[in-house]
Amino acid sequence: MPDSCLRSSVEKPVQEVLPVLPGNIRRLLDRLPETFLEQVEEIRLRQGRPLALGLARKDVFVSNDGNITGSASEAYLVTPADIDRLVQVISNSSLYALEEELKNGFLTLPGGHRVGVSGRAVMEKGKVKTLKHLSCFNIRISKEIIGAADAVLTHLVDRNRSTIYHTILVSPPRCGKTTLLRDLIRQISNGAPGSGLSGFTVGVVDERSEIAACYRGIPQRDVGMRTDVLDGCPKAEGMMLLLRVMGPQVIATDEIGRQGDIAALEEVMNAGVKVLATVHGSSIAELADRPSLAYLFRLRMVERFVILSRSRGVGTIEEIIDGKSL
């Protein structure tokens, strides 16, 4: 099986994030060595608590004098003023325009980085209407890796019918599944002569703005030239919408799992449109235990399962399974 370790091709994505941070925090981070900053995957700010940086395997605090520390007592504590300023900058001074985003608990920055937000939920008719008193922020630095799918793509091309197989990427969280999906979408959309693939029209339902990382509707990531992105739309509804109006040859989406998603997927496959999706899990056996996915297996329509892990670094491809052999 192919073995590929993902490396970021975008230079210093963390530099895109620093400008949204309050000035004093930005100055603290500026003092850190650049090689260290590049490994940072998350920046976490919680009001009154230590400023934390998430790395691949652990998290560290930043001290008052701009050094890395493991002890919370030396760490810089995030002030209410820091939080205020952060909210203003990430919301473009327009919190009122972000009610929908707050309801979902995240917003997207220019450059496609996601900020997870939590605070106090405001309820209306038993549902979250919006959040207020925002106090915890997780800025996830999104890394685009061009070429992440090179090794996999050849296994997903149906050379006899010059198209791709219905494919599901299976992976636990943070193993590079969205990154892989994004690059697959880009290559399928642009065409990959090396794998004998001409370009396809791809429709992407990007419910959580993770794949194309749209900022005001414009993809911030390279998702290919024949790709239409439906941003922020529930998957099942979105797939039907794209199927009806955009005439896609391939429909891609992230993290399927609910009954409705599977039904929509079935409909898409029956319409002769190829499917590319991801699902949380670490093995086929584990997936088969989930009722909605067990139904998907019984349909026997998915032709390829790609299993990812972190065993040899983020984005390790453990196995590619032929759906017909199951």
């Binding site: 909210v87 203003q88 919301s91 001074s93 919190l95 009122y96 009610e99 207020k132």
Partner: peptide
């Protein structure tokens, strides 16, 4: 208060 709260409050 500009920009720091929801629509109704604004």
């Amino acid at each position: 208060s500009l920009g720091v709260s929801d629509q109704t409050d604004q």
